[in-house]
Design a protein around this nucleic acid. Sequence first.
DNA 1: TACACAATGTTATATTATAACAATTAACAC
DNA 2: GTGTTAATTGTTATAATATAACATTGTGTA
Lengths: 132, 132
Amino acid sequence: MLKQEILSKNQQIVLDYIEKVNEPIKAYSILHNVQKKGIKAPLQVYRALDKLVEIGKIHKIESRNAFVACKNSNCQISKATAFSICESCEEVSEISDSKLSKYLKNFQDKAGMKFNKYNLEFFGLCKKCSIK
Amino acid sequence: MLKQEILSKNQQIVLDYIEKVNEPIKAYSILHNVQKKGIKAPLQVYRALDKLVEIGKIHKIESRNAFVACKNSNCQISKATAFSICESCEEVSEISDSKLSKYLKNFQDKAGMKFNKYNLEFFGLCKKCSIK
DNA sequence: TACACAATGTTATATTATAACAATTAACAC
DNA sequence: GTGTTAATTGTTATAATATAACATTGTGTA
Ligand SMILES: [Zn+2]
Ligand SMILES: [Zn+2]
Ligand SMILES: [Zn+2]
Ligand SMILES: [Zn+2]
């Protein structure tokens, strides 16, 4: 089968909401906010999230147990992700830097492991929070 | 106060166990295994883990919610961590590559964020699992 | 001693995520 | 269309991960 292009009902509901809020959001927060659309149980959210992550529509911010919509149009599969995270205001941005991604894709570890995916999270202070 | 060098009782118990098992281990698994040492509640484990992470004795593998002892002697504070993770056998190794760490420490994102920490997780197949 | 702070002990609870199973719907070959 | 398969959904219950709140004890230091 080709990469899925048409989303199922629940997948679309969850994706629509994540894209609308435009910031990292947690699974149970999604649940509360889509209950009016008919989604009632955590599993319905988690199943949609799993699929959306798999096809690269969203990413999981591992250190925060939160999900964000992909902002990187050429990132159709979540195999090479990088984020900046402000430890003060919790703002998260997806980093799109071709030199960085090239460097990491080509990285060879000494143990000879074959990598097919990476996730990188930078932490610090965003511009706004630096001033304060 | 200077960087803590002497660990408290619970911190030492938890660290000893993590160093002994020598692979990523989860908080509740630690709890079960140190109960004979007198640690009874999750919170006692989590508090020790928090401190051990803070001082760089252990690291959290975010994608696995698991903890490993630091193998990188010059990594006294968990500010720059990189791991390789086998998606088949779940073996985890801490990557110690000065070029990589230099590259990431110097990385400047376009939004002008000031980074003070990063965590990188590579996923793939270890040598053993590649053969199968 | 007195103070501040770190660590402990304990109970309860919050948060995040999955198991198990039945029912329904979509995709596709014939 | 029929049958077959896989994907998706619905539902209840439960597992796994993590923190809140509060009282107490230990430790370093002025
Ligand atoms: Zn992306
Ligand atoms: Zn900020
Ligand atoms: Zn380390
Ligand atoms: Zn392996």
